[in-house]
């Protein structure tokens, strides 16, 4: 079975996807401002947006295996948008930390980024993700030629750093981060040929 959607319907599906990806974020902040997120809304908004970023990243990595395995080529049209939402969630995650956790105490903000290894790691992932977001337009992609793909292969590293950052931030029970490591491993297993190729070239 080959499932596909007509090209002229893609904008419609994109609009729907925008709703699905953006609504939780709006809902989150409405609840946060209305004091409907329990006793500590700050913890909730930070965690929610962090998980949103990791989830979007992993979903974006799921697109090409799905497209190839089930011949769902049209899915590729949505990959960039999902990747950009990963960036939006990650940006909100950091802004939440700055606005609501450290409350514009820039010395504390910068101190925490450099002193806490798990935050440093998260920040590295964010800067890499920022570079992908900035180069995501079709125009820049054409200009960058082969380098574009090289840069955007960093998405594999970003997702890994994101999952490690999550694992490292957890206080005691690591079940959930381990599930994410497993998901990441499964997604990378689809790319084992390419990973092998890269590791051979490194030798």
């Amino acid at each position: 079975m080959v499932l596909s959607i007509p090209t002229d319907r893609i904008p419609l599906f994109k609009a729907l996807l925008h709703l699905v990806l953006f609504y939780p974020l709006i809902n989150l902040y409405v609840d946060a401002f209305a004091d409907r997120l329990g006793a500590d809304p700050v913890e909730v908004v930070i965690h929610f947006t962090g998980m949103g970023a990791i989830n979007c990243l992993l979903i974006s990595l799921l697109i090409s295996p799905l497209a190839k395995t089930f011949k769902l080529g049209f899915l590729i049209h949505f990959r960039r948008m999902i990747g950009l939402y990963a960036f939006v969630y990650a940006l909100c995650h950091i802004l939440n930390f700055l606005f609501f956790e450290v409350q514009f105490d820039l010395r504390l903000f910068i101190g925490e980024i450099f002193q806490r290894p798990y935050i440093t790691l998260g920040m590295v992932a964010f800067v890499l993700l920022l570079s992908l977001a900035l180069t995501s337009s079709a125009k820049i992609r054409r200009k960058m030629k082969k380098n574009w793909q090289k840069l955007h292969n960093f998405t594999y590293l970003i997702a890994l750093l994101g999952v490690i950052h999550f694992y490292w931030s957890v206080k005691s029970d690591i079940t959930e981060p381990l599930v994410y490591f497993a998901l990441y491993g499964a997604l990378m297993a689809f790319r084992r040929d390419r990973l092998k190729h890269w590791s051979n070239r490194l030798r």
């Binding site: 699905v20 990806l21 939780p24 989150l28 997120l37 329990g38 909730v44 965690h47 929610f48 998980m51 949103g52 990791i54 989830n55 979007c56 979903i59 079940t175 959930e176 599930v179």
Partner: peptide
Amino acid sequence: LLSGNASASLL
């Protein structure tokens, strides 16, 4: 589904 973990977790 997307947001994984607000108060409740994915699990």
